[in-house]
């Protein structure tokens, strides 16, 4: 077990979990919903990609697109069930949290019911080749994962920065009330946001399934990783999520190297608790004042 292998692994995982964390973070900051149904969307899009690879084509682009589209669909479903009916009711944040948990319970059990407990695996969408860079062997899936996740997340962030819809979403992040006063529809924007973040979850699901299998409950661990990163970076901040993803990835690599694999979660949570005790809103958390208003 050499350092390069661990480091490259950590970078790959950080990219994928960072994608999830950015999705969670955008959801919370723009529509004010803690989407704990994210694990379900993750698993659902994994199955969507699997179905596409079974019945349409095993071409990498098709599988990836199918996963992203299923994820977006899952996001729309969660939005229609947990955001639209209660977003203007009292106590929305708590009720939304519980509603997404209920969706997660229903959804994962439904997946179990339809697809059975046996896990599925996706074809290698990036082919199978190797590159040797300075003594570190990089396989095709690692390079593909890193490149695709960085490209897609950058594209989403650029889109949010430069397009009309992105402007609407950012306006919602700053102040939902004022945004609705100047004519930005809360429900419409909610659907956009949930579709995009669902698509990010779908992307992460397909990418992660290059390493792990797809199972009904497989979304939980990635979601908890994503939530931890989003928490640590500060809910609502993309930059914070990136920093937190790097820190936690490093921690994972170092712990696995120095202490052993079973201590990864323990050190990770100790680190998160430590960071949150110093900065209760995360590394870059700034948004809560605006959200409370």
């Amino acid at each position: 077990m050499d350092v390069g292998f661990i480091l490259s692994n950590a970078i790959v995982l950080a990219c994928i979990y960072g994608t999830l964390a950015i999705g969670l973070s955008i959801t919370w900051s723009s529509v004010g919903l803690i989407n704990l149904g994210y694990g379900f969307i993750f698993a659902l899009s994994g199955y969507g990609a699997w179905l596409a690879s079974q019945y349409i084509s095993t071409n990498g682009v098709v599988v990836l697109t199918a996963g992203v589209l299923t994820g977006a669909l899952g996001g729309l479903l969660v939005c229609a069930l947990a955001f639209i009916p209660i977003h203007d009711k009292p106590n929305f944040t708590v009720r939304g949290l519980i509603a997404t948990l209920a969706i997660s319970l229903i959804g994962t059990q439904a997946l179990l019911y339809f697809f059975g407990p046996r896990s599925k695996n996706l074809p290698d969408i990036f082919g199978f080749w190797k590159v040797n860079v300075a003594g570190i062997v990089l396989t095709s899936d690692k390079i593909g994962n890193v490149v695709v996740s960085i490209v897609v997340v950058t594209a989403v962030l650029l889109w949010m920065r430069s397009s009309r819809r992105g402007l609407e979403i950012r306006a919602m992040m700053m102040n939902p009330h004022a945004a609705s006063i100047v004519g930005i529809g809360v429900r419409k924007t909610g659907f956009y946001v949930m579709a995009i973040t669902g698509g990010l979850a779908g992307l992460a699901a397909v990418l992660l399934s290059q390493t792990y299998y797809i199972s009904p409950f497989g979304g939980l661990a990635p979601m908890i990783k994503g939530v931890s990163i989003a928490l640590c970076g500060g809910l609502g901040s993309v930059r914070g999520a990136v920093i937190a993803a790097i820190i936690l990835g490093l921690n994972e690599a170092l712990t696995a190297r120095l202490l052993g694999g079973q201590y990864v979660l323990i050190t990770q949570f100790l680190l998160i608790i430590l960071i949150l005790l110093v900065r209760p809103r995360g590394i870059a958390g700034i948004l809560d004042r605006a959200r409370e208003a």
């Binding site: 919370w28 803690i34 704990l36 944040t93 949290l97 939980l220 661990a221 908890i224 939530v227 931890s228 928490l231 809910l235 979660l265 949570f269 998160i272 608790i273 949150l276 005790l277 209760p280 809103r281 995360g282």
Partner: peptide, 19 residues
């Protein structure tokens, strides 16, 4: 952590502790 964190940060953290 409950002394410093509020609401959802705490809920998410406790899910993680459970896991």
């Amino acid at each position: 952590p409950a002394i410093r964190l509020d609401g959802f940060y705490y809920a998410l953290l406790t899910i993680g502790l459970n896991e």
